[in-house]
Amino acid sequence: MHYMTKCSGSCSSFDSTSAEWFKISELGLETSDTWYQANLVVEDPANVTIPSNIEPGEYLLRSEIISLQLAVSVGGAEFYPACIQLSIGGSGTGAPQSNEVCQFPGCYTDTEAGIYTPNIYNPPINYTFPGPPVAAFVNGSSDSDSNSGSGTENPAATTSPTPSTGSQTCKLVSSSNPAGLVVKRGANSRPRHKRRPARRWRY
Score class of each variant (00 low, 15 high):
61 L>A: 07
74 V>A: 03
10 S>D: 14
172 L>T: 12
9 G>Y: 07
77 A>F: 01
23 K>L: 09
81 P>N: 00
13 S>I: 12
33 D>M: 11
105 P>A: 05
101 V>D: 10
66 I>Q: 04
110 D>W: 04
30 E>R: 06
79 F>C: 01
82 A>G: 13
103 Q>H: 10
175 S>M: 10
4 M>A: 06
65 I>A: 07
141 S>C: 11
45 P>C: 10
114 G>N: 02
121 Y>F: 14
72 V>S: 11
77 A>E: 00
57 G>K: 07
183 V>M: 12
20 E>F: 12
109 T>W: 05
70 L>R: 10
69 Q>P: 11
57 G>T: 05
97 Q>E: 15
124 P>R: 05
167 S>G: 08
170 C>Y: 01
76 G>Y: 02
197 P>V: 05
56 P>K: 09
54 I>H: 00
181 L>H: 12
92 G>N: 03
104 F>K: 02
26 E>W: 01
47 N>F: 13
48 V>T: 11
190 R>Q: 13
137 F>K: 08
44 D>C: 11
36 Y>P: 00
172 L>V: 12
29 L>K: 03
160 S>P: 09
33 D>R: 02
148 S>R: 15
36 Y>K: 09
110 D>V: 00
115 I>G: 04
88 I>R: 02
95 A>I: 13
81 P>K: 00
49 T>D: 05
129 F>T: 01
55 E>V: 12
195 R>M: 08
100 E>L: 06
40 L>Q: 06
76 G>E: 02
10 S>R: 12
188 N>W: 12
73 S>V: 15
134 V>F: 01
132 P>K: 07
115 I>V: 14
91 S>M: 11
74 V>C: 02
169 T>L: 07
178 P>R: 05
85 Q>L: 11
104 F>P: 02
66 I>F: 09
19 A>P: 09
